[in-house]
């Protein structure tokens, strides 16, 4: 797949945050998954897809940077395995050839499927403010940022309707929290 590596449907441009290498973050789910990866060179598919991949998708990490990370850190990773998984499933960089929609979610999914949230600095139930789980507002901000690319998708259209029903103050809070987070995230 010589050209597949060049796909970047959502035009994601962010560098991979340093904490993907160091684990130095207050988001416990990410910290646990990165630390475990450093120890074992292994993480299972939900950790890769719904924690590490999901978060990178939410903040628009460039497909090249995320592909390189996955390829480096996992003992089972070869380019032919990682590229379709990362570009296709995680980042939706192919615009929907392999996956029907981007695999992104807020904190609720991680809360349901793990016990990471119990010992996290952030509160998974809070949607906005300094203690709110960043996955929550970043999720909405992601949808808003990529509205042009995603709005016609049947399984996502519903989320846009939910967003439209939020108060303008709430929408503003999402946007502010996300901007503030992304500005300080390195």
């Amino acid at each position: 797949m010589p050209n597949y590596a060049e796909y970047n449907f959502l035009n994601a441009q962010r560098a991979l945050p340093e904490y993907y290498w160091t684990g130095n973050t207050q988001m416990n789910c990410l910290k646990q998954c990165v630390d475990q990866t450093a120890q074992t060179a292994y993480a299972h598919h939900i950790q890769r897809l719904m924690v590490l991949g999901n978060f990178a998708a939410l903040i628009d990490v460039h497909p090249k940077a995320l592909n390189e990370w996955f390829l480096s850190v996992y003992v089972d990773a070869y380019e032919w395995v990682e590229l379709p998984n990362v570009s296709g499933m995680v980042l939706f960089a192919d615009g929907g050839i392999l996956a029907s929609k981007p695999y992104v979610s807020g904190g609720a999914y991680i809360h349901k499927m793990s016990n990471y949230c119990q010992s996290c600095h952030y509160r998974v139930k809070e949607k906005n403010g300094p203690k709110a789980c960043p996955f929550n507002y970043l999720y909405w901000d992601f949808l808003v940022r990529h509205r042009d690319h995603l709005k016609d998708h049947p399984r996502i259209a519903m989320m846009y309707r939910m967003y439209e029903r939020m108060s303008p103050e709430k929408q503003q809070a999402i946007s502010n929290d996300a901007a503030n987070f992304l500005e300080h995230s390195t």
Partner: peptide, 15 residues
């Protein structure tokens, strides 16, 4: 298959 537990990297997966 989809569950994650702190301190349990291997869970019931095959590796």
């Amino acid at each position: 298959q989809d569950a994650m537990l702190q301190g349990e990297p291997w869970m019931y997966h095959a590796h």
